[in-house]
Every structure is written in C-alpha cells, then in structure tokens.
Amino acid sequence: MAKIKTIIDGIEVEVERDSWAIDVARELGIDIPTLCYHPALGPYGACRLCVVEVTKSKWTWLATACDLPIREELSIKTNTPEVIRSRKMAMELIMARAPRAESLFPLAEKLGVTKPRFKCRDDIGNCILCGLCVRMCDQIIGVSAINFANRGHKRIVTTPLHKKADKCIGCNVCVEVCPTGHVKTLDDGSFRHMQTWDADLEMLHCLICDKPYIPAKQFKVISDKLEGIELKRICPVCRRKETVDNLRYAVVEKVS
C-alpha cells in the first residue's frame, strides 16, 4: 500500500492511505478531544469536537479528524484560533444539552466553556447522543439491543418499542463507553439491572467463589461464539488466581 505524506502541526509523517487523521495525530502524541470516537468502531463524526483545520493546496477548511481519511497530501493544524473557537462552540452546545453531565466539566473548562450562553435543556438526562453505546452494542457485541429513535432534536437512544430490552445481554459495554454516565447499571446479588434499558438479567455464580459475576445471557453469547471450546464458569478474580497458581505450579515443577 502506498504511503501518503502529510503534515500535522508542522510534523511531517508518512501514513497508510486512508488512515484516519485522528489516529495519526494521536500517534504523534497530539491531543484531539472527542466524545464520540472509539478506535474499535468506524468513524462517525457526531460530537464535532475533534475538528481540525485542513489545507490542501490553496483550500483551507474545517473538518472533523475522526472521519477524515488521509488519501492525499494534506496539511493539518489542530490548534488554530478557528479550531479553538469551533471546539468551544461545540462544547457549549453539548453542555446546553446536558448541563449536569459532571464528567464533561473538566473538558468543558479546558475548552473554555463555563456556563453555556444558550438555553439549557433539562428533560433528557445526560445523553449527548454520541452513539457509542448504540454502535458498540451493534458492531462489537452484535446484539443491537438499543438504537436511536426519532430524528432531529427529538432523537433519543432507546430500546425497541420503548419496552424492556429483551435482547440486552447485560454486558455493560454501553455503560463503560458512555462519556457522561447517562447509561446506568446496578448489580444486586443475583441480578444485574440495566436501569437505562429496563432490563433485569439473572447472574451466573462463579463455580469457585460462588459470587455472581456474569449475566447468564452474556455467558451464553460468549459460549456460542467460542464454537465448542468450553468456557469455564469462573469469575475474573478466580480465573486470575487460577492462572497464577498454574504458572507457579509450572515454575516449581521446572525448577525441581
């Protein structure tokens, strides 16, 4: 594959054709803020925070780095006044949408937003529609228990027909990727409650320590994916212990 020359903040690099600008910049240690990009997922371009200034011959324009493929020589700047202004406005709009999303406060402050000048919403919780949960559930987990509904400013993330998410396997990936803590879960003994998706999942207990550790549905999905290889019903803690024990045993044996 042909390498393409490109310049980011004055640093000249050669990259694979169609590398995403955000990956290239991050590899160079250049910080680009984003709330909707995840390397495991394809580009999406929803939050608009990763905006950079792109110059190609005599043209200069703003583009989001997460969905900008490098396929010809570009000069990219990540820190111009225009970029700073755009990111600030994007953050301001996001904060007006989710004014109580505390996890965003440090980033907002860094981008120069303290109090949005706009009318703030208070009817939608902390969801900023980054789509990470939806895309993870669909593209990585392969379950698609949740999705967007409606369009425009009425868009929400929800379960099919707004009912209990019966496809949800309780893997908690949506909770982990959510940048604002909007998606909530609660483990309560034998059950995992996916509170945001109104799903209650029965937990399986570890065969060694007997602690509940994985929803039965998730266990089944993983087992099915392994196609015949047996998945031991052991929690991560016990598995680690077992692995260490096995190693130690192996080492002892070798020494003796």
Partner: peptide
Amino acid sequence: CGKCTACREGVMQ
C-alpha cells in the same frame, strides 16, 4: 437527522 451536534443542537439554539 439529529446525528451531529452542530446541526441538531446548533439549529435548535
């Protein structure tokens, strides 16, 4: 469509 912040939130404001 509601996908990006700029259009969804910006136009609403």
